Amino acid sequence: MKPIEKYGLSSCAVVLASLMAPGLAVAQSSVTLYGSYDVFLGYQSATVNGKHTTLTLLGDNAESVSKIGVRGTEDIGGGNHVNFVLENGFDPTSGQQQNSFRFFDRQAWVGISGDFGEFRAGRQNSPLFTLLGNADAFGVTTYGSGFNNFIMEQIRVDNDLAYFTPVFANTQLEFHYAAGGVPGEFTGNAVYQVGVQTTQGPLVAVAAYFKANNATNTNSVQQLLAAANYDYGYGKVYAGFFRTNDVISATTGNALTSPAGKGNPAAGPVTNTPGNYHDTYTVSADYRVTPALTIGLGYAVTIDSSGLGNNAREFGVIANYSLSKSTRLYAVGTRLMNSDGARFVVADAALSPGAFLTPDAGTDETGFQVGIRYAF
C-alpha cells in the first residue's frame, strides 16, 4: 500500500471520515510475514543390521524447522489487541509440506491480549517446546544435542485454550487446557499444560509440565521440564532435566508415540507403558570468540527406569558464525552411545523421515553437520 500523499484524495477522505465520526477511533492493525530456511549437509555413521553403515544427505531443519508464517495484531482500543498466528512447516530440499494431513501444521490460533494478559485458542506450541531452548547450548536442536535426540517432547497441541499472565517481577506463567472431544467425558483425551519462565539478571530459569489422558482417562502421558542458563559475560552455561513416561522401553528403548496430534491425529493421543519413564540430564556451555563467532559443547545422558538398562549418553560440539542478523553458518559434531537395547538416533530438529540411521541395539553413532540458516 502506498503512503497517503499530502493533499491527495486519500488524505481528504481520511479528514472527511474523521469529521463525520469524531468519536470513532481508527483501529491500528499490522500483518507480518515471517519464516526461516535451514538446510545442511549431514554425515552419519553407525552399525545397522550388523554392518558398518554411513549416510550422507542434504537435509533440512538442523538448527530450526524451515517454516513460513503470518502473524497479525489489531488494536481494538483500551490497550487491548486481537492477535493471530498461522504457521506452515515445509521441506526446503523438496518444497513439500512437512505434514501432508494439515497445512498450518505448526500453529493456527487467535487470541486477545491486554493488561489482563493474553487468551489464545487453536493449535499452539506447548510450553515444553517454547521454553526448551533455554536448556542447552544447541538450542535443543541439531545432531549435537542430547536433549534433541533423547526426550521427544510434545511440541504442540490441537484444540488448545491458553492463558498467559502479565509479566510480573520478570516472570510469566501460562496455563493450557485442550478438550479431548470424547462425548460425555470431560477428561478423556484431554491435555493439561503449565509453564513458567523467569529472568533474574543473568539467570533464566524455566519449568513446564504436560499431561495427556487417554480416551478413558485410565492412563496418561506425563512430561516434565526444568532448565536454566546463566550469562557469564562471554557466553552462557546451561543445565536441563526432562522426564517422560511416554516410552515403550520393553522392546525398543526409545520408540515414543505422538500424543495430542504431534504426528498423525488418526494414530490416537496416548499409547505408553505405565510406570516406565526416561530421565534425561544435560549440561553445556558456549563461548563468544568474536561478536560473530560462538563455539559450544555439551553432554547429555538418558536413564531408563524399566530395569532393561536402555540408557544412552552423548557428547556434542557446535560452532555458529553470523554472516548478518538474518543469516548464520553452523557446524556440528557428535558421538552418541547406546546401552543394552537402546536405539537412540542422531537427528535434526524435526526428526525427518529417512534423514537418519537407526543403529543396532546398544551400539554407537557418529554424526556431523554443516549448514546455513536464514530467518526473516
Rank of each mutant, 00 (worst) to 15 (best):
D304V: 02
D246K: 01
V283S: 02
T54I: 01
S30E: 14
G35A: 00
P183Y: 03
S66D: 00
K262P: 02
E118P: 10
H176P: 08
D348F: 00
R328T: 15
F84G: 03
C12K: 13
R335F: 08
N125T: 08
D115A: 09
E314P: 01
V182D: 14
V191F: 04
N125V: 10
D364I: 00
S30D: 09
R335K: 15
G309K: 09
L55H: 09
Q193M: 12
E5A: 15
Y192A: 03
T251P: 07
N80G: 01
V182W: 02
L128Q: 09
V26Q: 12
A375W: 04
Y321S: 04
Y277Q: 06
Y192L: 14
L128S: 08
L297I: 11
C12I: 15
S30W: 10
T56A: 12
Q107V: 02
V194L: 09
H278I: 00
A266H: 08
G77D: 05
N99A: 15
V14L: 12
T366Q: 05
T187A: 14
S145G: 06
L33S: 10
T273A: 05
S36L: 05
T47F: 07
K211A: 08
V39Q: 09
P3G: 07
D360A: 08
A27K: 13
L256F: 11
T73H: 07
N80H: 11
S322N: 14
Y238L: 06
A342T: 01
Q96R: 15
P265L: 09
N189D: 15
V15M: 12
S45N: 14
G367T: 07
A228M: 11
I155R: 11
L173C: 13
S36R: 09
Y37M: 10
G139I: 09
I151L: 05
Y234A: 14
G309E: 06
L41V: 15
N254L: 04
G201H: 02
L203P: 03
N254Q: 05
L57V: 13
A208L: 03
A25T: 13
Y7Q: 11
Y177E: 03
N134M: 02
Q172K: 13
V65Q: 06
T251E: 06
T280S: 09
L58Q: 13
T363V: 04
I151M: 05
C12F: 14
A285L: 10
G184R: 04
T252K: 03
I372M: 15
A135W: 01
R120A: 01
D160E: 13
G146Y: 03
L293V: 13
S324M: 07
F368P: 07
F103N: 11
A62M: 12
N264S: 04
L173N: 09
A190T: 03
S284D: 04
L256H: 15
